[in-house]
Design a protein around this nucleic acid. Structure first.
Lengths: 200, 200
DNA sequence: ATCTTACACAACAATCCGTATTTTAAACAG
DNA sequence: CTGTTTAAAATACGGATTGTTGTGTAAGAT
């Protein structure tokens, strides 16, 4: 599932104990990330919460940045939304509402903040940030592509761009403005998109 | 100009030397923020770059977070765009292009990342983040309000929401996706907005 | 049962933060 | 110009953190 480009350890062929300890560390790191924040995802704190020797963490990840990236990768796993009912406007609203709940339940703000703050220096964080956002937007694009295959919309539209225009305001409100995503916002975004595409 | 709510020191009635040193420190801090990143905006690094005793920084700001907030406040000063020509569609495009250049020239990504990463724990950073984003969006809202006063659009529209829908995709591309804001994106956003409001 | 691997444990230097104290120099008042 | 006030420089300190190294020990593989 993990799509990390760098040398991914062969988790399958590891010691059972190693695999177990590694998972315990990652679980604790995720917990620390979501409760205490990204700047506390450090060898000391994570080791304390995982009841693991601090040096063990350095055996698995070379430094704090690597541990944080792995932690974010663990918490931001791809999502497979339930298939829509096959009606574009309903599926679009569902996709955006689903996005909203994912944003809230997955504590996306601290994760996104950690990514954004490191992306400036560390290219690994930059690509992780892109991946994080694109993965949030992807279900919306999937709805559009499904509608395209049904012939409900013109097939020549750029589903990536269209999905960005639909999901963008939701992400903007939640991640940038720290504001609630209201039903009215979702409704307005979807309604306008339908008007523009002569489906209103 | 600075709208920091907390106890703002009376810069006017300070010692000339104090005022000078304070400015030197802030300048160095801004430099550190933009080149090395927010996590290096620390007493040690800033003092080193400003050629100032480290302890002096603690006389002005109680801790690292306060220094970082002041630094961001210094770099993210409000912007007064030139007035538009009075034609809505042209002014909207200008406002979005102006926004794009501001994002690039003002190194908004590291600033935004620092705000986003601290906003989770520190309410001061949360409001600063909101202020930062709203200040970026405000010129677009101003264009809409001016058009409303001219009667070019219906006066009952929520200029804040509309500006968010217009500027959102630009911010989304630049700050979230680390992608370039193309002319095509701006054109698409504006054209669609005009269509929705029967101005296309 | 033996051997290999990896974790626990302890100690290490290097760094940094925030504070307190003393010394020095700048700004100001008479 | 001189004495006083103010703030910065210099130094030192305790506490905490990062990343490294080395030694024992127990889990897992053969």
């Amino acid at each position: 599932m993990s799509v990390v480009s760098e040398s991914e350890p062969d988790i399958v062929r590891m010691n059972p104990r190693t695999r177990r300890v590694r998972q315990v560390i990652l679980d604790a790191a995720v917990e620390v990330l979501l409760t205490d924040g990204a700047e506390h995802v450090t060898a000391t704190h994570v080791a304390g919460r995982a009841d693991v020797a601090r040096t063990t963490i350095y055996r698995h990840w070379p430094d704090q940045a690597a541990l944080l990236l792995a932690t974010i990768d663990a918490v931001a796993s791809p999502h497979h939304p339930p298939p829509g009912v096959g009606v574009l406007d309903r599926d679009l609203r569902s996709a955006l509402e689903n996005l909203r709940t994912r944003l809230m339940v997955h504590q996306s703000r601290p994760v996104f903040g950690a990514l954004a703050s490191h992306a400036h220096h560390d290219e690994g964080f930059a690509v992780a940030q892109r991946r994080f956002v694109e993965q949030l937007v992807r279900p919306v694009a999937a709805v559009l592509e499904a509608a395209g295959e049904r012939g409900e919309v013109g097939g020549e539209l750029d589903s990536q761009l269209e999905a960005t225009l639909l999901a963008g305001p939701v992400l903007h409100h939640h991640l940038m403005l720290h504001a609630d995503v209201t039903d009215g916002l979702i409704e307005a975004v979807v309604a306008r998109w339908l008007v523009v595409h002569d489906l209103g």
